[in-house]
Structure formats: C-alpha cells, structure tokens
Amino acid sequence: MSEPRIIDARDTFCPGPLMELISYMKRASVGDELELLSTDKGSVNDVPEWIAKVGHELISSEQIDNVWHIKVRKAK
C-alpha cells in the first residue's frame, strides 16, 4: 500500500486546513489516502464532520507534538 499524501496546513486557521484537504481530495483518486497536518484545533472536529457529511472515510486522528495528524481515505 502506498504512503498517504501529506498535506501540510500547519499554522493556518479555520477554514484553511479543511479547504486545503478538500482541494487535494478533489484531485485524488478513489482509495487514495491523505494525511492532513494541522495546528488548528477546530480541524479535529471540523474535518471528521466534513468527511462524514460528504461520505469519505476517516482512518485516524491523533495529536503528535501539538500537530494534529488526520488521515482520511477518498471513498467516492
């Protein structure tokens, strides 16, 4: 399995990280994994909310050294 594509949205504020993720998601293929790096605390809730609403898959979400790593898979 290939490594997830990293989207570095650190030091940007809402809704910047989500918009960055959506930009990459639009260009990705079904099944691709993307990993969003964000220091915006709101992303922790907003990204899963968006993922659930539009029907993609949340793989994991964890905080490492004040950076949130949110992994998602394009499902459609």
Binding site: D11, F13, G16, M19, I22, S23
Partner: peptide, 18 residues
C-alpha cells in the same frame, strides 16, 4: 496581523472552485 488566516478573497475563490 496573523498570516495564517486565509483571505476572504481566497475563501470565496475556494467556494466557487471547490
């Protein structure tokens, strides 16, 4: 003052493009 806030013009562009 904070460079991390996306500009309103960029956000409107996202709205149209995405």
């Amino acid at each position: 003052e904070d460079g991390g806030v996306p500009s309103f013009k960029q956000l409107f562009k996202y709205a149209a493009e995405l």
